[in-house]
């Protein structure tokens, strides 16, 4: 309409915000109310799907962690910040356990791919984000024992995922048990069949023995 009317309107809006920032309650979500959360003292509730750094999960004792050192996560990690060395037994044979499992948190980009690719549900993304340190070379290179956390912790931070993973694992275990049983049965059956076959063969052999002996004795 006239010069400056839009400016006055805009200034009215900022002024109302200024006044309401005092009159309205902080965090109430009303227009003009302050939205700041005073971080170290106050926190927003964590969301379950929030993720930042990975951790290794173990069920009962820290020794039997789920990770089998298959190296899949290390291969798939985009910035290649996982370093795994397999444990070896006395004979020098590699075991299904990591001796070294290092993640460089200065390099990790929180993508969560390690969690996705792990076939053994052994690595998951944590909610811990206050890991700042003044020494980026030693303190932010997390070793196997720093990364270990219990299944309970996982359930605490991500209840839904924890339940899902547990049922999946239980199913897998059951299936495996069934399969094992089936295999056992099959093996038994096979063994029985074999034994039977052998027995048959043996009887056959008995029957065929005379010529065989003949044959054997032939060159003599």
């Amino acid at each position: 309409m006239f010069f400056g009317l839009g400016i006055l309107r805009g200034m009215n809006i900022t002024l109302m915000n200024f006044i309401r920032s005092y009159t309205r309650k902080r965090g109430s979500g009303e227009i003009g109310a302050l939205t700041t959360v005073q971080y170290p003292e106050e926190r927003l509730p964590e969301k379950e799907k929030f993720r930042n750094f990975p951790f290794l999960i173990y069920d009962d004792k820290p020794e039997d962690l789920r990770c089998v050192a298959c190296d899949i996560c290390a291969q798939d990690c985009p910035p290649r910040c996982i370093y795994i060395v397999k444990e070896t037994d006395e004979a020098g044979k590699p075991m299904k356990k990591p001796a070294v499992f290092d993640i460089d948190f200065t390099v990790c980009m929180n993508c969560g791919i390690c969690e996705e690719v792990c076939p053994f549900d052994a690595i998951f993304m944590d909610h811990e984000f206050e890991i700042a340190d003044s020494d980026r070379h030693d303190k932010l290179l997390y070793h196997r024992d720093d990364l270990l956390k219990t299944n309970e912790h996982f359930h605490k931070i991500r209840p839904n995922d924890g339940r899902e993973v547990d049922t999946r694992l239980a199913e897998a275990k059951e299936a495996k048990a069934k399969k094992d049983e089936a295999r056992k049965k099959a093996a038994e059956a096979k063994a029985a069949a074999k034994a039977k076959a052998e027995a048959e063969k043996a009887t056959e052999a008995k029957e065929d023995k005379p010529p065989e002996t003949e044959k054997e004795s032939d060159p003599q």
Partner: peptide, 10 residues
């Protein structure tokens, strides 16, 4: 302070 208040900050 003033600009923060106008932008709903502290």
């Amino acid at each position: 302070k003033v600009v923060a208040r106008m932008q709903n900050r502290i």
